[in-house]
């Protein structure tokens, strides 16, 4: 029972029990955000290093707030200020950090497997805050926490994930976590952004058009289109993408009447989602952000509570 890992590297190998344990604990941590004094001493004396090799204000801040609300000492290292720019290898950077005896290292890196590389090398717990297009487990878990506020996370629920699946760690982590809980997942991407062979490895339904994915969906999860990938010949223009794949009010009507709309942020308004939908009553995008802190507190608590 429970969650007894040293690291959280992905959702791919998490069991349903582990996922539910984290979600239930996160549920309890939500309450702390409503207190006048938003701090508990659970991780007092523990050190959390946020090691971000990719810019990410939002995830880093979320981890930092989560750590501080648990009374841990949170230290931020970003690539721009670290020795990485001086050509130091990841192993050397990590060995140096290990020498300072942190309890938890949160890492964001542009290459797949960077968190795994570190986890195999250091004694501290490692949380993967995004490795390339592979995994971003805390994002998926906070998405599940948000879904659970409105829907029952169980077989029978249908989640549509629409956007650049191929390059999305958010999509992958969500696919693993949702399918582990028996939720029906429909994905839709431009054919240039759909990884070949995805149906072979995950029990998901791949839809050609967003309309197909939206029909009957209880949850609509839009992915960020990375505009900087424009030079990669993946789609002809932002305008074309928005017309065919963007979520607008008319398309949203295809989903269940009580469907909720999610986006991991940051949004490209008017591209993958219209402002009308993003700010509409069915949008739970800001709840995702609040839940991110509670979920990350739960993860830090479970990993940080086991040091000797």
């Amino acid at each position: 029972m429970g969650f007894k890992r040293k690291d959280l590297l992905g959702t791919r190998d998490l069991s349903a029990v582990e996922i539910r344990t984290l979600l239930e604990s996160a549920e309890s941590f939500k309450e702390i955000a409503e207190r006048p004094l938003k701090k508990v001493p659970a991780l007092r004396g523990k050190t959390v290093v946020n090691l971000f090799f990719e810019p990410s204000t939002r995830t880093r801040t979320s981890f930092e707030i989560a750590a501080k609300r648990l009374s841990a000492d949170a230290v931020n290292m970003s690539a721009a200020t670290s020795s990485v720019v001086k050509g130091e290898s990841l192993i050397d950077t990590v060995d140096n950090i290990q020498a300072m005896a942190p309890d938890i290292v949160v890492i964001r890196h542009r290459y797949v497997g960077a968190a795994h590389l570190i986890a195999g090398r250091i004694g501290a717990s490692v949380i993967n805050a995004g490795d390339g297009a592979n995994e971003h487990p805390t994002q998926a878990l906070l998405d599940l926490l948000t879904i659970a506020e409105h829907k029952k996370l169980e077989p029978g629920l249908t989640v549509a994930i629409i956007g650049d699946i191929a390059h999305s760690r958010v999509a992958r982590s969500n696919i693993w976590a949702l399918t582990t809980l028996g939720v029906t997942v429909k994905v839709c991407a431009p054919p240039t952004m759909l990884p070949r062979g995805l149906e072979e490895i995950a029990e998901i339904c791949v839809c050609r058009r967003p309309e197909e994915a939206l029909v009957g969906a209880d949850v609509v999860m839009m992915l960020r289109i990375q505009l900087e990938r424009q030079d990669r010949l993946l789609f002809p223009s932002i305008r074309d993408y928005a017309r065919i794949f963007g979520l607008n009010r008319r398309r949203l009507e295809l989903a269940r009447p009580d469907a909720i709309v999610m986006h991991p942020g940051p949004m490209n308004r008017g591209v993958e989602i219209t402002s009308e939908v993003a700010d509409g009553e069915r949008s739970v995008i800001l709840n995702q952000v609040s839940n991110g802190v509670a979920l990350r507190m739960a993860v830090l608590f479970f990993l940080g509570g086991q040091g000797a």
């Binding site: 429970g2 239930e24 309890s28 608590f301």
Partner: peptide
């Protein structure tokens, strides 16, 4: 054992 966290 891992503590079970409940809501205050």
């Amino acid at each position: 054992h891992h503590p079970v966290l409940r809501k205050t």
